[in-house]
Design a protein around this nucleic acid. Structure first.
Lengths: 102, 102
DNA sequence: CGCTGATATCAGCAAGTGGTGATGTGAGAG
DNA sequence: CTCTCACATCACCACTTGCTGATATCAGCG
Protein backbone atom coordinates (compact mmCIF):
# COMPACT_ATOMS: atom_id res chain seq x y z
CA UNK A 1 0.00 0.00 0.00
CA UNK A 2 1.09 3.54 -0.57
CA UNK A 3 2.01 4.74 2.88
CA UNK A 4 0.78 8.29 3.10
CA UNK A 5 3.56 10.75 3.71
CA UNK A 6 2.95 13.05 6.63
CA UNK A 7 2.50 16.58 5.29
CA UNK A 8 3.64 18.12 8.57
CA UNK A 9 7.06 16.50 8.41
CA UNK A 10 7.52 17.64 4.83
CA UNK A 11 6.27 21.08 5.69
CA UNK A 12 8.85 21.32 8.43
CA UNK A 13 11.56 20.44 5.93
CA UNK A 14 10.25 22.85 3.34
CA UNK A 15 11.85 25.92 4.86
CA UNK A 16 15.33 26.74 3.50
CA UNK A 17 16.79 27.54 6.91
CA UNK A 18 15.36 24.41 8.51
CA UNK A 19 16.64 22.31 5.65
CA UNK A 20 20.07 23.80 6.21
CA UNK A 21 19.83 23.00 9.90
CA UNK A 22 18.91 19.42 9.10
CA UNK A 23 21.83 19.14 6.71
CA UNK A 24 24.18 20.48 9.38
CA UNK A 25 22.77 18.10 11.96
CA UNK A 26 23.24 15.21 9.57
CA UNK A 27 26.98 15.76 9.90
CA UNK A 28 27.34 16.35 13.62
CA UNK A 29 25.26 16.76 16.71
CA UNK A 30 25.20 20.45 17.60
CA UNK A 31 23.74 22.75 20.21
CA UNK A 32 21.86 25.96 19.56
CA UNK A 33 24.94 28.11 19.95
CA UNK A 34 26.71 26.23 17.18
CA UNK A 35 23.71 26.52 14.92
CA UNK A 36 23.50 30.25 15.55
CA UNK A 37 27.15 30.58 14.49
CA UNK A 38 26.78 28.38 11.44
CA UNK A 39 23.60 29.87 10.08
CA UNK A 40 24.01 33.47 11.17
CA UNK A 41 20.39 33.56 12.27
CA UNK A 42 19.27 35.20 15.49
CA UNK A 43 18.91 32.98 18.50
CA UNK A 44 15.19 33.65 18.79
CA UNK A 45 14.56 32.82 15.19
CA UNK A 46 16.57 29.65 15.42
CA UNK A 47 14.78 28.57 18.54
CA UNK A 48 11.50 28.92 16.69
CA UNK A 49 12.71 26.74 13.85
CA UNK A 50 14.02 24.15 16.26
CA UNK A 51 10.62 24.06 17.87
CA UNK A 52 9.01 23.31 14.52
CA UNK A 53 11.52 20.55 13.83
CA UNK A 54 11.01 19.14 17.32
CA UNK A 55 7.22 19.13 17.03
CA UNK A 56 7.45 17.49 13.64
CA UNK A 57 9.45 14.73 15.29
CA UNK A 58 12.50 15.29 13.13
CA UNK A 59 14.97 16.12 15.88
CA UNK A 60 15.44 15.14 19.50
CA UNK A 61 16.85 17.35 22.23
CA UNK A 62 19.54 16.22 24.59
CA UNK A 63 20.34 18.56 27.46
CA UNK A 64 24.02 18.76 28.33
CA UNK A 65 24.61 21.12 31.19
CA UNK A 66 23.16 24.42 30.18
CA UNK A 67 23.44 23.53 26.51
CA UNK A 68 20.85 21.61 24.58
CA UNK A 69 22.06 19.41 21.78
CA UNK A 70 19.93 18.52 18.82
CA UNK A 71 20.12 15.14 17.23
CA UNK A 72 18.48 14.07 13.98
CA UNK A 73 16.10 11.15 14.17
CA UNK A 74 17.45 9.13 11.30
CA UNK A 75 14.45 6.79 11.30
CA UNK A 76 12.19 9.64 10.25
CA UNK A 77 14.45 10.53 7.33
CA UNK A 78 14.76 6.89 6.40
CA UNK A 79 10.98 6.59 6.50
CA UNK A 80 10.61 9.57 4.19
CA UNK A 81 13.14 8.06 1.85
CA UNK A 82 11.19 4.83 1.74
CA UNK A 83 7.87 6.53 1.16
CA UNK A 84 9.23 8.61 -1.68
CA UNK A 85 10.80 5.49 -3.13
CA UNK A 86 7.37 3.83 -3.08
CA UNK A 87 5.80 6.85 -4.74
CA UNK A 88 8.51 6.89 -7.38
CA UNK A 89 8.06 3.19 -8.06
CA UNK A 90 4.31 3.61 -8.34
CA UNK A 91 4.74 6.64 -10.59
CA UNK A 92 6.91 4.66 -12.98
CA UNK A 93 4.03 2.30 -13.71
CA UNK A 94 1.31 4.95 -13.54
CA UNK A 95 2.06 6.28 -17.01
CA UNK A 96 0.15 3.41 -18.58
CA UNK A 97 -2.73 3.62 -16.12
CA UNK A 98 -4.39 6.51 -17.84
CA UNK A 99 -8.00 6.92 -16.84
CA UNK A 100 -10.30 7.58 -19.79
CA UNK A 101 -11.52 11.09 -20.43
CA UNK A 102 -14.94 11.63 -18.84
CA UNK B 1 28.64 14.25 -0.72
CA UNK B 2 25.41 15.36 0.80
CA UNK B 3 23.38 16.49 -2.16
CA UNK B 4 21.37 19.44 -0.99
CA UNK B 5 17.66 18.84 -1.23
CA UNK B 6 15.78 21.50 -3.14
CA UNK B 7 13.53 23.35 -0.68
CA UNK B 8 11.11 24.35 -3.43
CA UNK B 9 10.31 20.78 -4.35
CA UNK B 10 9.72 19.87 -0.72
CA UNK B 11 7.66 22.99 -0.21
CA UNK B 12 5.46 22.01 -3.09
CA UNK B 13 4.89 18.62 -1.50
CA UNK B 14 4.24 20.12 1.92
CA UNK B 15 0.65 21.06 1.22
CA UNK B 16 -1.88 18.36 2.20
CA UNK B 17 -3.95 18.77 -0.95
CA UNK B 18 -0.92 18.68 -3.23
CA UNK B 19 0.38 15.63 -1.44
CA UNK B 20 -2.95 13.96 -2.04
CA UNK B 21 -2.80 14.90 -5.70
CA UNK B 22 0.67 13.41 -5.96
CA UNK B 23 -0.52 10.22 -4.28
CA UNK B 24 -3.42 9.98 -6.73
CA UNK B 25 -1.13 10.62 -9.68
CA UNK B 26 1.20 7.90 -8.45
CA UNK B 27 -1.56 5.42 -9.18
CA UNK B 28 -2.84 6.65 -12.51
CA UNK B 29 -2.39 9.49 -14.93
CA UNK B 30 -5.36 11.82 -14.55
CA UNK B 31 -6.69 15.03 -15.99
CA UNK B 32 -7.90 18.03 -14.04
CA UNK B 33 -11.53 16.94 -14.21
CA UNK B 34 -10.69 13.65 -12.53
CA UNK B 35 -8.72 15.42 -9.83
CA UNK B 36 -11.59 17.80 -9.17
CA UNK B 37 -13.88 14.81 -8.66
CA UNK B 38 -11.43 12.92 -6.49
CA UNK B 39 -10.42 15.77 -4.22
CA UNK B 40 -13.65 17.75 -4.13
CA UNK B 41 -11.69 20.97 -4.53
CA UNK B 42 -12.80 23.76 -6.80
CA UNK B 43 -11.37 23.80 -10.29
CA UNK B 44 -9.68 27.15 -9.76
CA UNK B 45 -8.05 26.03 -6.57
CA UNK B 46 -6.85 22.82 -8.15
CA UNK B 47 -5.45 24.66 -11.12
CA UNK B 48 -3.39 26.79 -8.76
CA UNK B 49 -1.98 23.75 -7.01
CA UNK B 50 -1.18 22.07 -10.32
CA UNK B 51 0.72 25.19 -11.31
CA UNK B 52 2.82 24.93 -8.16
CA UNK B 53 3.54 21.27 -8.82
CA UNK B 54 4.35 22.03 -12.45
CA UNK B 55 6.74 24.85 -11.59
CA UNK B 56 8.42 22.69 -8.99
CA UNK B 57 9.08 20.17 -11.74
CA UNK B 58 7.13 17.43 -10.03
CA UNK B 59 4.53 16.85 -12.73
CA UNK B 60 4.40 17.13 -16.49
CA UNK B 61 1.37 18.11 -18.54
CA UNK B 62 0.24 16.16 -21.55
CA UNK B 63 -2.55 17.74 -23.59
CA UNK B 64 -5.10 15.27 -24.94
CA UNK B 65 -7.79 16.95 -26.93
CA UNK B 66 -9.29 19.57 -24.68
CA UNK B 67 -8.17 17.70 -21.60
CA UNK B 68 -4.77 18.04 -20.00
CA UNK B 69 -3.34 15.03 -18.30
CA UNK B 70 -0.84 15.26 -15.48
CA UNK B 71 1.94 12.76 -15.11
CA UNK B 72 4.28 12.41 -12.16
CA UNK B 73 7.99 12.72 -12.90
CA UNK B 74 9.19 9.65 -11.09
CA UNK B 75 12.85 10.72 -11.37
CA UNK B 76 12.18 13.66 -9.10
CA UNK B 77 10.58 11.47 -6.47
CA UNK B 78 13.37 8.95 -6.82
CA UNK B 79 15.89 11.74 -6.39
CA UNK B 80 14.19 12.90 -3.23
CA UNK B 81 14.19 9.37 -1.93
CA UNK B 82 17.90 9.07 -2.56
CA UNK B 83 18.72 12.39 -0.94
CA UNK B 84 16.73 11.55 2.16
CA UNK B 85 18.42 8.17 2.27
CA UNK B 86 21.78 9.95 2.25
CA UNK B 87 20.68 12.27 5.02
CA UNK B 88 19.42 9.33 7.05
CA UNK B 89 22.68 7.47 6.58
CA UNK B 90 24.69 10.51 7.59
CA UNK B 91 22.43 11.11 10.58
CA UNK B 92 23.03 7.58 11.82
CA UNK B 93 26.73 8.30 12.22
CA UNK B 94 26.30 11.89 13.36
CA UNK B 95 25.36 10.92 16.90
CA UNK B 96 29.00 10.33 17.76
CA UNK B 97 30.20 13.50 16.01
CA UNK B 98 29.24 15.78 18.79
CA UNK B 99 30.96 19.11 18.60
CA UNK B 100 32.31 20.27 21.95
CA UNK B 101 30.44 22.92 23.89
CA UNK B 102 31.85 26.36 23.14
C1' DC C 1 22.11 33.89 46.87
C1' DG C 2 23.11 36.81 42.88
C1' DC C 3 25.12 37.03 38.29
C1' DT C 4 25.88 35.41 33.69
C1' DG C 5 25.11 32.95 29.71
C1' DA C 6 22.10 29.52 27.07
C1' DT C 7 17.33 28.76 25.59
C1' DA C 8 12.59 29.12 25.30
C1' DT C 9 8.39 31.88 24.98
C1' DC C 10 5.54 35.92 23.87
C1' DA C 11 3.73 39.91 21.29
C1' DG C 12 3.69 42.30 17.10
C1' DC C 13 4.59 43.26 12.31
C1' DA C 14 5.49 42.29 7.39
C1' DA C 15 5.35 39.04 3.77
C1' DG C 16 3.87 34.88 1.74
C1' DT C 17 0.08 31.45 0.74
C1' DG C 18 -4.36 29.21 0.08
C1' DG C 19 -9.25 29.75 -1.24
C1' DT C 20 -12.86 31.84 -4.16
C1' DG C 21 -15.42 34.29 -7.81
C1' DA C 22 -14.97 36.55 -12.21
C1' DT C 23 -12.94 36.30 -16.48
C1' DG C 24 -9.92 34.90 -20.48
C1' DT C 25 -8.56 31.22 -23.87
C1' DG C 26 -8.77 27.45 -26.78
C1' DA C 27 -10.55 22.98 -28.62
C1' DG C 28 -14.32 20.16 -30.11
C1' DA C 29 -19.46 19.50 -31.05
C1' DG C 30 -23.47 20.84 -33.46
C1' DC D 1 -19.65 30.06 -36.96
C1' DT D 2 -21.37 29.56 -32.39
C1' DC D 3 -21.93 27.26 -28.19
C1' DT D 4 -20.07 24.54 -24.62
C1' DC D 5 -16.78 22.66 -21.81
C1' DA D 6 -11.95 22.15 -19.93
C1' DC D 7 -8.57 24.73 -18.13
C1' DA D 8 -5.75 28.87 -16.91
C1' DT D 9 -5.26 33.50 -15.09
C1' DC D 10 -6.46 37.55 -12.37
C1' DA D 11 -8.00 40.10 -8.36
C1' DC D 12 -9.17 40.03 -3.78
C1' DC D 13 -9.58 38.53 1.04
C1' DA D 14 -8.38 35.75 5.11
C1' DC D 15 -5.08 33.22 7.29
C1' DT D 16 -0.66 31.56 8.19
C1' DT D 17 4.27 32.01 8.81
C1' DG D 18 8.84 33.88 9.40
C1' DC D 19 11.48 37.49 11.73
C1' DT D 20 12.48 40.51 15.56
C1' DG D 21 12.81 42.67 20.18
C1' DA D 22 11.47 42.02 24.90
C1' DT D 23 11.05 38.94 28.46
C1' DA D 24 10.90 34.53 31.18
C1' DT D 25 13.42 30.31 32.67
C1' DC D 26 17.06 27.67 34.13
C1' DA D 27 21.81 25.82 34.95
C1' DG D 28 26.31 26.67 36.68
C1' DC D 29 29.75 29.70 38.88
C1' DG D 30 31.62 32.72 42.36
Amino acid sequence: MLTSVDPDVIRALGDPLRLRIVTLLARETLCTTHLVEETGAKQTNLSNHMKVLREAGIVETEPCGRYTYYRLKSEVLAGLSGQFAELAAAARTAAENKRACP
